[in-house]
Simulated assay, not measured.
Amino acid sequence: MKNWQKMLVASLACSAAFGMAQPNVEAAYQLNPEVKTATPALTAASQIGVLSYENPELKNLADKDAIVVMSFGTTFKDTREKTIDATVAAIQAKHPGVKVVTAFTSHIIIDRVKANEGITYPTPEQALDQLKAEGYTRVALVSLDVIPGMEYSYNTGVFHHYKKKFKKMTCGTSLMYWQGQEEQADDVAETIKALATQFPKQGKEDAILIMAHGTPQISNAYYSVIQAKLDDMGYKNVFVYTVEGWPSLETVLPKLKKNGIKHVTLMPMMMVAGDHANNDMAGDEEDSHKSILESKGYKVDAYIHGIGENKAVRDLYVQRAEDAWNALEAK
Rank of each mutant, 00 (worst) to 15 (best):
D65C: 08
A66P: 03
S71K: 02
S71I: 07
G73Y: 05
F76V: 15
F76G: 05
F76T: 14
R80Y: 13
T83N: 06
A86Q: 04
A86Y: 00
T87V: 10
V88F: 00
V101S: 04
T105C: 06
S106V: 14
I109Q: 12
V113I: 14
K114H: 13
K114G: 07
N116P: 01
G118W: 08
T120V: 13
T120G: 06
P122W: 09
P124R: 07
P124L: 12
E125K: 14
Q126A: 15
A127G: 06
Q130T: 13
L131F: 07
A133K: 12
G135N: 12
Y136S: 02
R138H: 15
V139F: 05
A140G: 11
S143C: 09
S143F: 02
D145C: 10
P148V: 07
E151W: 08
Y152H: 15
S153E: 11
S153K: 09
Y154F: 10
Y154A: 06
N155F: 04
T156C: 11
T156Q: 12
G157N: 09
F159M: 11
F159I: 12
Y162Q: 11
K163I: 06
F166Q: 04
K168G: 08
G172W: 00
G172L: 02
G172H: 01
T173L: 06
T173V: 10
S174E: 08
L175F: 07
M176K: 03
M176Q: 07
Y177M: 10
Y177C: 09
W178P: 00
W178D: 08
G180W: 11
Q181T: 14
E182T: 13
E182W: 13
Q184E: 15
D187H: 12
A189C: 08
E190P: 01
I192V: 14
A194Q: 02
T197L: 00
T197M: 00
Q198L: 03
Q198V: 11
K201Y: 07
K201P: 03
Q202A: 03
K204F: 09
A207S: 10
I208F: 06
L209A: 05
I210H: 00
I210L: 12
M211Y: 08
